[in-house]
Amino acid sequence: MKKGIMRPGHVQIRVLDMEAALKHYVDLLGLIETDRDESGRVYLKAWSEVDKFSVVLREADEPGCDFMAFKVVDEEALVQLEKDLVSFGCDITHIEAGELKDCGRRVQFTSASGHCFELYTDKKYTGKWGLKEVNPEAWPRNLTGMKAVRFDHCLFYGDALAETYDLFVNVLGFYLAEQVLDPNGNRIAQFLSLSTKAHDIAFIMHEEKGKFHHASFYLETWEDILRAADLISMEDVPIDIGPTRHGLTHGKTIYFFDPSGNRTEVFAGGDYNYPDHKPVTWSSEDLGKAIFYHDRVLNERFLSVLT
């Protein structure tokens, strides 16, 4: 959190059919609907999150990710970050408070990889869903599906990874947690973090800019991942891979698709970092094992199926 950016705040995902999307994100994944707006967007959150929403769904002709946002500690830090982004050469778009309901002003910019990001400081604090503020119970009843605990990170595909690294590490204050290097030492995957988590955002090298690989949600245990897989089969939802483990981050995982073809991950566990930790490195010759630790081969979909 070197520059005052605390954590991932929200992601806006485009879907082809809102009703079908809500079956996925609410009934199956277990997010909770918290609001809707005049333009038809639906606001969702996971139960353990303290702010009003972390996922916004927007109906559109093309699926994919509109933007991912990070929450900044205070206005002073936001103003400084804005100046730093401009000096770095980013074009800034100011989004007024209230454009997303109960969210303060947002500062929007695009990375060299072609992805849109936002910074903001204020969002309505609604507390953990279904729990009392004082003497909270362990978890709320009446959760649905996989009972996702929190929105955790996104993986994006695009080119210009070095410039994107520069932006995220030197301007925004992320650190490199894990990486994949090719034989010439070029970074083809970068997992970046603000916290002790193995990643708050990740990028993988791809010739086309601005592609969305997945949004990921945290579950507590391997048993929860197995239960998620059972639900995926019960609902006949397209599965990508899993349950398995990643080499990178060592998280236990399953990938599946929403009804518009956007990939969703639920994962459990994974490595942690402190500031004295060196980045974890995988070599591209072992990319299969780095991505899917048990199969040790990549499926073609992991590299080519994107929105």
Partner: peptide
Amino acid sequence: CKGGGCGVCRISIISGTPDFGPMS
């Protein structure tokens, strides 16, 4: 992705008629 999003299963229909669901 089996959801009309990624475009991998793109085909050209030579004969016959389908019902179209939403696709990117």
